[in-house]
Simulated scan of single mutants.
Amino acid sequence: MASKFQSRLVGTIILVAIGVIFLPDLFDGKKQHYQEQFASIPLQPEITDEVEYETIPAPEFAEVDLPPEPVTVVIDEPQPEQQVEVTAAAIEAANQPLKVEPQPVTEPKVGNQDSAWVVQLGVFRNFDNANQLVERLRKAGYQAHVFPKQPQQGDLARVVVGPDVSKQKLSGDIKKLEELTGLKGRLVRFNPLNP
C-alpha cells in the first residue's frame, strides 16, 4: 500500500496535468479565424456561337402635298469680291515674327489719389454704435460706410459719408450731417487702397 504522501503526490500531478491540458481551451473561448474571400475572375469569357440579331423596321414614308407650280426663291445677290493686291513687301512683313515690346510699369498718377473725398463723422470703439449710425445715415439718403469692413479685436470703427468727387458738395453736406447726427464731421481725402 502506498503511503498517503505518494497518493497525494499522484493526485496533485493528475490535477495539474488536467489543468494544463484543459484550462487553456477553457479560457481562450471561441477563436475566430479570419480568411479573406476571393472571387475567382475568369481568364476569358465564354463565347457562344449563338448571336442574336435585331431587325430594323422599314422606314415609314409620309405623303407630302407639293404645290402644282414650281416655287421660286429670291436670294440676295452676292457682293462682288474685293480684290486685294499682294506685294512682295507685304509677304515679307507677314513672314517676319511679331515683335512685342513689354510696356514699362508706370506708377499711379499723383492726381488719382486726390480725386475723391469723404466726410469722416467719427471714430468709435463700439462697432454696434457705428453700425447704428450708418443705418440712420443711409435711411436719410447718404452713402455711409464703416471702415474696416471686417473688424478685428482692438480695431476702431471709422464712420464716413462718401466718397464723392465733388469736394464742394461734401463740404456743403457737413452742416446737414451735423444737424442729423450731432457730430461735427471733417472733410478728408479718400484713398481707395486704404479706406
Results as ranks from 00 to 15, higher is better:
residue 23 L to R: 06
residue 24 P to K: 03
residue 25 D to E: 12
residue 25 D to Y: 12
residue 25 D to C: 06
residue 26 L to F: 11
residue 27 F to V: 15
residue 27 F to G: 08
residue 27 F to A: 13
residue 27 F to D: 10
residue 27 F to Y: 07
residue 28 D to H: 02
residue 29 G to P: 02
residue 30 K to V: 11
residue 32 Q to W: 03
residue 33 H to P: 05
residue 33 H to W: 07
residue 34 Y to A: 15
residue 35 Q to H: 14
residue 35 Q to S: 15
residue 36 E to P: 09
residue 37 Q to P: 13
residue 38 F to E: 08
residue 38 F to V: 07
residue 39 A to D: 10
residue 39 A to V: 12
residue 39 A to H: 10
residue 40 S to L: 13
residue 41 I to D: 00
residue 41 I to Q: 07
residue 42 P to T: 03
residue 42 P to C: 00
residue 42 P to M: 00
residue 44 Q to W: 02
residue 45 P to K: 05
residue 46 E to L: 14
residue 46 E to C: 10
residue 47 I to F: 13
residue 47 I to M: 13
residue 48 T to S: 15
residue 49 D to G: 12
residue 49 D to F: 00
residue 49 D to Y: 01
residue 49 D to R: 05
residue 50 E to S: 04
residue 50 E to D: 06
residue 51 V to R: 04
residue 51 V to C: 00
residue 51 V to K: 01
residue 51 V to L: 05
residue 52 E to D: 07
residue 52 E to V: 04
residue 54 E to R: 10
residue 54 E to W: 11
residue 55 T to H: 10
residue 55 T to G: 12
residue 55 T to V: 09
residue 56 I to Q: 14
residue 56 I to M: 12
residue 56 I to N: 11
residue 57 P to I: 05
residue 58 A to E: 14
residue 58 A to G: 14
residue 58 A to W: 08
residue 59 P to Q: 05
residue 60 E to Y: 14
residue 60 E to M: 11
residue 60 E to I: 11
residue 61 F to L: 15
residue 62 A to P: 06
residue 62 A to K: 08
residue 62 A to M: 13
residue 62 A to H: 10
residue 63 E to V: 09
residue 63 E to D: 11
residue 64 V to L: 05
residue 64 V to I: 08
residue 66 L to F: 06
residue 66 L to V: 09
residue 66 L to I: 01
residue 67 P to L: 09
residue 67 P to D: 01
residue 67 P to S: 04
residue 68 P to Y: 04
residue 68 P to G: 03
residue 70 P to N: 09
residue 70 P to D: 15
residue 70 P to M: 12
residue 71 V to D: 02
residue 71 V to K: 13
residue 72 T to H: 04
residue 72 T to W: 05
residue 72 T to P: 00
residue 73 V to N: 03
residue 73 V to L: 05
residue 74 V to H: 13
residue 74 V to Y: 12
residue 74 V to E: 13
residue 74 V to D: 09
residue 75 I to H: 06
residue 75 I to E: 04
residue 76 D to T: 01
residue 76 D to I: 03
residue 77 E to N: 02
residue 77 E to F: 01
residue 77 E to S: 05
residue 78 P to A: 01
residue 78 P to E: 06
residue 78 P to L: 05
residue 78 P to R: 03
